[in-house]
Amino acid sequence: MGRGRTNKIRLSAEQRQHLEALSRNGHAPVKKILHARVLIMSDEGEYGQQRWNDQQIGAALGLHRNSVARIRSSFLEQGEQAALNRKPRQTPPVPQKLDGEKQAHLIAICCSPPPDGRTRWTMKLLVDELKARSIVTQIGRETVRCTLKKTNCARGKSSVTVFPNAMRHAL
């Protein structure tokens, strides 16, 4: 994969100009600049000035020759954007503790009257209530706080709706 070059890159004048501008401006992420330099050095078209092999490109840029070959093959198979940009994640690294249904339960608890002897729901009381109702097995106060902050829910206040701004705009 890394030694002999079976797939050759031939950049057009505008592709080469775009990659050179990207590698010189200094405002792009470092990996993107590095990948652009690999593509420029791999160019064997009429605008490519020096013939570099994977070993030389890797040594010049501090990469392994297999990384150079992978970037080049990504460019040939999927195009310039795939070779320069990272692939976006399909799923988040940590799944959400509270999905839509569980958030609805949390909001319903928050809008209900607080327990006896309390004037409002605290984060600890909400966490304990979620666990007591078996909505979740384990959850932290910060997760509950962030969820309530997203919904503009005020703990313990009697309001017509959880989303007061939505009602004001609807009128």
Score class of each variant (00 low, 15 high):
K97V: 11
R51S: 10
V68S: 09
G2C: 10
N25K: 12
A154I: 13
I107G: 05
G100D: 10
I107H: 14
S73V: 13
R24M: 12
M1Q: 11
D116N: 02
A108T: 14
L61Q: 12
G48W: 05
Y47Q: 07
R72F: 08
S134N: 14
S23G: 01
G26A: 01
R70N: 13
E14I: 06
N165E: 14
R86F: 07
L148S: 01
V127K: 15
P114D: 03
N85M: 03
W121H: 00
A59Y: 05
E44L: 08
W52V: 02
Q138K: 13
S67Q: 15
G4Y: 06
T91S: 15
Q56S: 11
R86H: 12
R65I: 03
T122F: 00
R145D: 06
M167E: 14
K124V: 04
R5A: 12
A170F: 08
R70K: 15
P88E: 14
S112E: 11
R65Q: 15
S112C: 05
T151F: 11
N53T: 04
C110E: 08
T122G: 03
P164I: 05
L39H: 05
A28F: 10
S42P: 03
P29F: 08
T147G: 10
R16T: 03
E142I: 09
R133V: 04
K87F: 05
L39T: 12
S42C: 12
V127A: 12
Q81Y: 02
P113Y: 07
L125K: 03
G45V: 07
P95Y: 01
R70A: 10
S67D: 08
M41Y: 09
G117M: 02
P92D: 06
Q78R: 15
S42N: 08
L84F: 00
Q50E: 09
T91H: 15
L126S: 01
C110M: 07
Q138H: 00
P88R: 15
M41R: 14
E129C: 04
N165L: 13
T122K: 09
R3W: 10
R86S: 14
K131F: 00
R37M: 07
K8C: 10
P114L: 08
A59K: 15
V30L: 14
S134L: 06
L98M: 07
M1A: 14
V144A: 06
L130R: 01
C153V: 15
W121S: 01
I40D: 10
A60R: 12
R89N: 14
P88V: 13
T6V: 12
R89V: 13
D99I: 00
Q49I: 09
R16S: 10
E101C: 04
W121I: 00
M1E: 07
W52M: 04
I57A: 02
S73G: 02
R141S: 12
H35S: 13
K150F: 06
R72Q: 09
H105V: 14
T147L: 07
E80N: 07
K124T: 13
P93T: 14
